[in-house]
């Protein structure tokens, strides 16, 4: 008989606290996305159908560039958080599960960097 308590066996092994962190940041980004996505839809309606000159002038304004970067980064973080849960729930093949989880993280970071670089290029008039 082991004298070790069940707690001693569990501590440090599970995903204690990480689950909450994941849940918490999904909510934080969700709340941020309420105004950000409303702004984004309004902006798309403003810019859609206009030519390149109009769109660049619009994006070159510091406020628009700032909020757009905030929207894209927050949205990508929120999306990868949600997709992660969907993959964890439905993909039961171990290697595929891990591959998809990694692919989603890498894709999110790649898209984040590409978006920021693109916005900065327009803002700085490259």
């Amino acid at each position: 008989m082991s004298l070790r308590s069940p707690l001693a066996k569990a501590v440090g092994l599970g995903s204690a606290k990480h689950g909450f962190s994941h849940w918490w940041w999904q909510r934080v980004t969700a709340i941020a996305l309420v105004p950000l996505s409303v702004w984004f839809v309004y902006s798309v309606l403003t810019v859609m159908g206009m030519d390149h000159q109009y769109a660049s002038d619009w994006l070159a304004q510091p406020f628009n560039a700032t909020v757009l970067i905030l929207f894209v980064l927050t949205m990508l973080f929120h999306a990868q958080t949600g997709i992660q849960v969907v993959i964890e729930d439905y993909i039961h093949t171990k290697w595929l599960n891990l591959t998809l989880l990694l692919a989603v993280k890498f894709a999110a970071v790649l898209m984040a960097v590409m978006s920021v670089i693109s916005v900065l290029k327009v803002v700085l008039g490259g």
Partner: peptide
């Protein structure tokens, strides 16, 4: 989430 790809392409084309 797939729409995020379209947003990135939009910004890329704009740049």
């Amino acid at each position: 989430s797939f729409g995020s790809v379209a947003i990135v392409i939009w910004l890329g084309a704009l740049a």
